[in-house]
């Protein structure tokens, strides 16, 4: 039987052992069907876990903040498209930012947007870690994520797109987030992140490199779109084969970059 431990302070949670409960949309499946895999649940009741706070340019999003809270926050309108892409309304009332960071393939659409933004992951013991490093080692990492820290991008600099096979909602064939800095249609720098194209959300540095200095038109983005595939490691699943995902990734990146979606 699963034990539930209530942790009233995030600091105390850092020492506790067990599965952290976010919104439970993934963890409770395990509790319902394979409870022996979840002997101990840590339920964090510290209000800071569910708060969005702003200090200067930095915004801290508590790991227990739900997708519905993101959509409702006027400070986070640039993240609303990614939050809206997750499940139906009931899932969004429950699913948390922290849980999305750990969500296995093909989930993790919100983490893709955070990866493009270059978020920092803040652990309950006070450590912070770059999201890219966090995602690369999340399978083996232990501890409680307290918050993610971001700086809001320039207006319209973050673009997010999700490709699904069922409408109006479905899980990702892939999701893509791109952060562009530049003036008008000329790109200075870009961060390009893909979801459902590898074991965890990943960047395409080849596409980023090709976009630096490019113009956002069909010719200007062609090299980046062709290059993105070299960094991706998709798998076959019930939604799409790895081959299909590779074939269509350049097309979906181009649509996102040129606003053709």
């Amino acid at each position: 039987m699963t034990e539930v431990q209530t942790i009233e302070q995030l600091g105390a949670a850092a020492q506790a052992q067990g599965h952290v409960l976010g919104g439970g949309t993934l963890l409770m499946r395990q509790v319902n069907y394979t409870p022996h895999q979840v002997p101990n649940i840590l339920r964090i009741t510290d209000p800071a876990f569910r708060q969005i706070t702003r200090a200067g340019r930095q915004i801290s999003i508590g790991a227990g903040v739900s997708m519905a809270q993101i959509i409702a926050s006027s400070d986070l309108d640039f993240l609303a498209p990614a939050a809206r892409a997750i499940g139906g309304p009931a899932i969004r009332s429950m699913a948390t930012v922290g849980g999305n960071l750990f969500a296995p393939h093909p989930y993790g659409d919100f983490a893709v947007a955070l990866l493009a933004l270059g978020a920092q992951v803040q652990w309950a013991d006070g450590r912070t870690e770059d999201i890219e490093a966090f995602l690369a080692s999340r399978e083996t990492s232990k501890g409680v994520v307290a918050a993610v820290l971001i700086e809001p991008p320039q207006m319209d600099a973050l673009r997010f797109g999700k490709v699904t096979r069922t409408k109006p909602k479905g899980v990702s064939v892939m999701s893509i987030a791109v952060l562009i800095t530049g003036v008008g249609r000329s790109v200075q720098q870009a961060r390009v992140a893909f979801g459902a194209m590898g074991p965890a959300p990943m960047r395409s540095k080849a596409a980023e490199h090709a976009l630096a200095g490019a113009t956002l038109d069909a010719t200007g983005v062609a090299a980046a779109c062709a290059a993105c595939v070299s960094d991706l490691a998709p798998v076959n699943d019930a939604l799409a084969s790895a081959w299909y995902r590779r074939e269509v990734a350049p097309i979906h990146l181009r649509r996102l970059l040129l606003g053709e979606n």
Partner: peptide, 25 residues
């Protein structure tokens, strides 16, 4: 019992939730 069908939808504090994925405590 895994969040896919929505048959267990209830409102908690006015918001839709899936009761099968909500810990009773």
């Amino acid at each position: 019992g895994q969040g896919t069908c929505g048959a267990c939808t209830i409102l908690i504090n006015g918001e839709p939730h899936l009761s099968c994925l909500t810990l009773a405590v």
